[in-house]
Design a protein around this nucleic acid. Structure first.
Lengths: 206, 206
DNA sequence: ATCATAAAGTATCGATTCAATACTTAAAAA
DNA sequence: TTTTTAAGTATTGAATCGATACTTTATGAT
């Protein structure tokens, strides 16, 4: 009996999209390898540095990085050890929960990232794609990402200001009902692990 | 204690798109690892099997696979050896150029792919995304992929029937000018290493 | 309060990928 | 023919990565 395994490579097929995502990631991984090779760093190290460069002070933990990359905390711990030995990151204990280790780029790490510029190839390659098309694709991929994480019972990681718990108090002040914390405007545009989307903010589109 | 983890969000930026591509690929890689683990296969083995399932008869070589995944031929050779030992693929010499090894899935390999179904998670996750939105995103990512390949001077690896060398002779007969061979309809829906996109299939949009 | 359980992180070990290098064979070019 | 290039394999060594066990701290139950 012949089973249907894959849809043929038709442009409408989600599998075609998966192929592209996979292939682009493979090539960028090779690029990260190339860029990091001079400094003796592996692709996963470059990804960790880029993660720490972009994440805010509430998400800079080994566990969050492990979830982000789909690796185990033990594996990540090793990569972070190497980055620490090279002086590219700094680790410090969380004040409230003393089990938690917080991470940040060192000045050396920031300098290295700025000089190595691992996303340059991607930025050059997407130079001629309009902001609209980028935004549209981002919304599609994020919808899929949301579902992938839901399937695997991972944290939802949705946008804060589309969450039912996010309430606007005044012009510049937001408040999260769930955690009872005040949020700045920029913070509400980041992704929250506990996000619960309002209706009309998923999959249907922009 | 409940913790909040924020992740950055830059809707219009190409780097945001790269983040999503990278992250989705990381999670799918973890999924491939999970699916292949029962059979003792690594993510790269799953990717190789999926590649062989989708590639046309001009591109089913170790070299093509290496370029597709951004790895060296020596690395790929090892992965293929394992798949051969497991009886999941078959290797045979090319008739014309005897240096070339051709690859195909064995019936066991096909059965395994059908049963393991590594893309199931992705298909479920993208179930509610419309065909139009998928197609739009595919066109955006393909444009970026084409530029990445151009920058790195690698072959583009596109779908046959969007290629300038693919010409329709009659209702069911196609012809590849580059290879000078006749193509069946299904064949034109596979991935080809030498694909050169027609104008209107890149960057400008659909 | 006390004990049990869970969570964050680290250490260690083994398996496997992956790059680098050298080598073989065959094709192409001189 | 001779030389050079290309496809593929074998070997070796480094380093990722998962699994497991362990430490420390936080949380929950009795």
């Amino acid at each position: 009996m012949v089973s249907i395994r894959y849809y043929p490579l038709m442009l409408k097929s989600p599998v075609a999209l998966l192929d592209l995502v996979d292939r682009l990631a493979s090539l960028m991984r090779a690029e990260f390898r190339r860029v990091g090779a001079e400094a003796g760093l592996m692709p996963v190290h470059m990804q960790a540095l880029m993660f720490l460069d972009q994440v805010n002070r509430f998400s800079n933990t080994p566990q969050a990085l492990a979830e982000y990359l789909g690796l185990t905390k033990g594996t990540i711990s090793q990569s972070l050890l190497l980055l620490d030995r090279r002086g590219l990151i700094e680790r410090y204990q969380d004040e409230v929960d003393k089990r938690v280790v917080r991470l940040r780029l060192s000045s050396l790490g920031e300098a290295f990232l700025g000089q190595a510029n691992p996303t340059e190839l991607w930025q050059v390659a997407s130079r001629d794609v309009s902001a609209n098309r980028v935004r549209y694709s981002v919304s599609v991929l994020r919808a899929i990402l949301y579902e992938v994480q839901a399937q695997r019972e991972g944290p939802p990681f949705g946008v804060c200001h589309t969450c039912v718990y996010c309430q606007r108090k005044s012009q510049r002040i937001y408040h999260c009902i769930l955690f009872g914390e005040r949020l700045s405007g920029p913070e509400t545009r980041k992704i929250c692990r506990e996000q619960t989307p309002k209706s009309g903010h998923l999959s249907a589109g922009e």
